[in-house]
């Protein structure tokens, strides 16, 4: 089953007070940032801090993601050299525009894994798409590596690139969201929506989360722990959905017991999509204790 990624919580990589126990907020993923939230003079200290944290702090099994600087900057390579050794679950590449961006970084990660006796391929990757070019290349990016577990929209840079700005309704993002979502689904990886930066505007945030959930996104990048509960609440299935899902699963188990090839519930046939949806509902409801595969 796919890993839940409803909330990917940003934490600035140079802030020990936040880094030391960010897990208490129980997001689905923690994303340590070495990129935009870190000033040029502190890139090195953030790198050391995140590396030490990954090695020493118990993040209680929550997925750890590190957003590194791009390889086109003087920090990208040094970030990888330092961070891959500390073995986060995922390396997130910012401002991805082409599949080559991914392959280039993958090669470096593979080399570092090899040098440090880490099984090659263990480190997963995530790509943020933040430009028109990236959006148009979304599918080729999404399918560029086996390591890639998801793609995310980074809207702040993207709308600037489009020569517009963000609106509450988000019409300017409709294409990018659709494109990224379809690419992710076609590649069978996660699709994560962009951040919502006005922390005080809970109403607006709720509307946006409901919107992207309806579009089909797996979740959202978030910048404040206060936003976590809201996302989880909106993604939580309704009691009726849970009840139905439980019935579906019971029907499957019943059919398995009876060795019956055809599964039906209340006289209706249950096919694969219905089973998948039921499983996802139960996962979102936190009821399911079924095995979770790592990564995908």
């Amino acid at each position: 089953m796919e890993k839940l990624r409803r909330t990917m919580l940003y934490v600035p990589g140079n802030n020990p007070a936040m880094i030391k126990d960010i897990y208490i907020y129980q997001p689905d993923s923690i994303m340590f940032d070495l990129e935009d939230s870190i000033s040029l003079a502190e890139k090195d200290s953030a790198r050391f801090l995140v590396s030490e944290a990954l090695t020493n702090v118990d993040y209680l099994g929550i997925e750890t993601v590190v957003r590194v600087n791009g390889l086109d900057t003087e920090f990208g390579l040094a970030d990888l050299e330092c961070i891959v050794k500390a073995q986060p679950d995922v390396i997130r590449l910012p401002k991805t525009e082409t599949s080559e961006d991914i392959s280039e970084m993958e090669a470096i990660i593979a080399r570092i894994e090899l040098e440090n006796n880490i099984p090659v391929g263990k480190t997963k990757m995530f790509a943020a798409i933040e430009s028109a070019k990236g959006v148009l290349n979304a599918y080729s990016i999404a399918t560029s590596s086996k390591r890639l577990v998801g793609i995310a929209l980074g809207a702040e840079d993207y709308v600037t690139n489009l020569r517009t700005n963000r609106s509450p309704e988000g019409i300017e993002l409709l294409f990018a969201r659709g494109q990224i979502l379809n690419a992710a689904r076609a590649a069978n990886i996660s699709a994560i929506d962009t951040i919502y930066s006005d922390i005080e505007n809970e109403e607006g945030f709720r509307r946006e989360v409901e919107h992207i959930k309806q579009l089909g996104f797996d979740g959202k990048s978030i910048i404040n722990p206060r936003q976590i509960d809201i996302v989880h609440e909106i993604y939580a299935p309704k009691p009726k959905e849970i009840e139905y899902a439980l019935q579906v699963i019971a029907a499957i188990q019943q059919a398995e017991k009876e060795n019956s090839g055809v599964i039906s519930l209340n006289g209706k046939m249950i096919d694969k999509p219905i089973v998948e949806r039921a499983e996802r509902v139960l996962q979102l409801a936190g009821i399911n204790d079924m095995e979770q595969s790592d990564g995908r």
Partner: peptide, 9 residues
């Protein structure tokens, strides 16, 4: 403070 809010909630 998010931590205080978490405890409060």
């Amino acid at each position: 403070n998010p931590k205080e809010l978490l405890i409060a909630k």
